[in-house]
């Protein structure tokens, strides 16, 4: 009878513990890295972007490409730009900036991984107007937007709409030789 009571106590204790476990808050961010903290896609403001671009002056040519997951022409040209970065790893730095809405951040990150991008890219934050002006006064805000900057820091070309590998490479070659 005593043994039975002990068994009952153990059984009750185990049941209570199992029930309590259902209410323990599980921090999913520890199981899976939060998109906001992923080094592959960092937040950037217009002024921060300028500092990043300036850091390559005298070292590498820079290709800034502003894209978004919902933008069909952006998605179409994206692999060409990745290919270009692979072709000129020492002399070119591609700076991808996602213009996606904040609620599409995880989608943007998944796209970058699918495209096998393995360098830091950025996620636009802050006011559109300020951001657009800081990227280029000649940009009206339409996506995609690309801007090629020479090793000397001078702008080689910028354009809205998508482009072919040939067009990107032509401007990048000019930028590398500056």
């Amino acid at each position: 009878m005593i043994i039975s009571n002990k068994r009952l106590e153990i059984g009750l204790f185990a049941t209570v513990m199992i029930l309590l476990m259902a209410f323990v808050p599980i921090d999913l961010t520890h199981q899976k890295e939060s998109p906001a903290s992923d080094p592959l896609l960092k937040n950037v403001t217009g002024s921060e972007l300028q500092e990043i671009v300036d850091s390559y002056q005298g070292k590498k040519a820079v290709l800034i490409n502003v894209w978004a997951t919902w933008c069909a022409p952006c998605v179409e040209e994206f692999p060409e730009i990745v290919k270009l970065q692979r072709a000129y790893p020492e002399k070119l730095q591609v700076i991808f900036i996602s213009g996606d809405f904040p609620d599409a951040r995880a989608r943007a990150l998944a796209f970058l991984k699918k495209q096998e991008v393995d360098w830091t890219t950025y996620f636009k934050t802050g006011d559109d107007q300020e951001f657009i002006e800081s990227v280029s006064p000649n940009w009206t805000g339409a996506l995609p937007f690309s801007k090629v900057i020479g090793i000397d820091g001078e702008v080689v070309a910028s354009w809205e709409q998508s482009a072919t590998y040939t067009k990107f490479e032509r401007h990048v070659k000019t930028a590398i030789n500056q």
């Binding site: 978004a68 933008c71 022409p73 213009g99 636009k124 559109d128 107007q129 657009i132 002006e133 940009w139 009206t140 805000g141 339409a142 996506l143 995609p144 809205e160 709409q161």
Partner: peptide
Amino acid sequence: STKSLGCTI
């Protein structure tokens, strides 16, 4: 005059 992000025509 103002600017905003948008889809290309």
